[in-house]
Simulated scan of single mutants.
Amino acid sequence: MALLGVLVRAVIIVVAAAAAVSGSGLPVPGFDGLAIGFYHETCPQAEDLVLAEMREIVQEDRTLAPALLRFMLHDCFVRGCDASIMLKSREKIGERDANSSYSLRGYEQIERIKAKLEDECPMTVSCADIIVMAARDAVFLSNGPRYQVETGRRDGKVSCTIDADNDLPPPGSNIVDLKIYFSVKNLGWKDLVVLSGSHTIGRAQCGSFARDRLYNYSGEGRQDPSLNTAYAPELRKACVAGDPFDKTYVDMDPGSPYTFDLSYYRDVYSNRGLFVSDQALLNDRWTRQYVERMASADSTDEYFRDYAEAMTNMGRIEVLTGDNGEIRKVCGAYVD
């Protein structure tokens, strides 16, 4: 009878997990206190409300889809996925005041989504989870996958400029540095090459790449020799020579800048990656093989599966759960 009881309980657990995956909403335990369907009881409409608001945001301004996807990277790589990027600081010492955050957009949109959730479920859904859900929906609304996300994060109380400037990989990083930045966050080479594919949507300011790529490669006063010779003149027309403050925008994926597809990998394989860090993916055996495979793929199926896994991995970086952190009513609430 004891064995039978164990078997029955095992069947119940499996059925419950399958039901959650199939859409019944029952939470499925995830990583370190996270769960798929975490808000099933406390705010069952949370994910639907985020998606509905994201639809309106992207319809109003399609450039906000890639902006909010980037927003998650900036939050998770600095002190973990805890919405510390949102915190304002009276002394201008928070992450949002860092040099690496100067072109970041999405603060108002995260607050907008938070306000909707506060109306429905006061002091329940964390800003950290909103950032992760908004990034997922930004991908989906750009014709990418809509994968399940683990939720249950809590918001961090500390935000420091120096952390943001030290923890985010610069766009001029080589492959060795990129792998180090990612490994420190418990992300591997596959996460690196898959998440780099996020550059298939969005724009970049000339000041973030032109000096390294076009005018002063490795401090040698020349163009990056690996850059496609037909692509380089197009970029030169758009970007003032070596101006680090040039805010002119250039599409990162010129062929389909607002469609989540495999064009990024085809561009990188053809030496048309915008950043040095994009081109660097060809300088490692494993990342290069992945770029080659995606560049020649007939379907996005494999990439979409890999992307969902990589985003899940990034969403687990240094999370605060349980009694750690807090739930904020306003995501940008001032640091004490």
Rank of each mutant, 00 (worst) to 15 (best):
H74D: 15
G30E: 06
Y102A: 03
K92T: 05
V132Y: 12
V268K: 01
G172F: 11
A297D: 13
P44M: 07
H40L: 02
A295S: 13
N283K: 03
S218H: 08
E326A: 06
Q223N: 14
Y265Q: 03
E47I: 14
L227I: 14
W286C: 07
D278Q: 02
P27D: 02
A98W: 13
R136L: 09
N216I: 07
S218W: 04
Q45P: 00
T321M: 09
R316M: 14
L69K: 12
I110K: 01
C81H: 07
R236S: 03
I113T: 01
V240S: 10
G322F: 08
I180M: 04
E220I: 02
L49P: 00
R305P: 00
R62A: 09
F245N: 06
A297W: 07
N143T: 15
T124W: 02
C239D: 04
M133V: 05
S198K: 14
I57N: 07
D243S: 13
R153K: 06
D323P: 01
G202K: 10
W189S: 10
V268Q: 04
I175F: 06
V11I: 13
R222C: 04
Y107Q: 03
A17L: 11
D155A: 11
V6W: 01
D243A: 13
T229R: 15
I13R: 06
T300G: 03
A128F: 09
L73M: 13
C127Q: 06
R9L: 15
D137K: 06
R316Y: 14
M314H: 01
C331S: 06
V8I: 14
S173L: 02
T259S: 15
D212A: 14
A67W: 03
P257M: 10
F38H: 14
R211V: 01
M294Y: 12
I113A: 01
I201T: 10
C127Y: 03
D165T: 11
F77Y: 14
T287A: 02
I201D: 05
V6I: 14
V149D: 00
R96S: 11
V78Y: 03
L235E: 11
D61T: 14
R328L: 15
R154S: 02
L282T: 11
L178C: 04
E108L: 08
T259D: 15
P169Q: 07
A241P: 15
A295M: 08
V15L: 09
F77V: 12
I93M: 12
L87Y: 00
A18V: 15
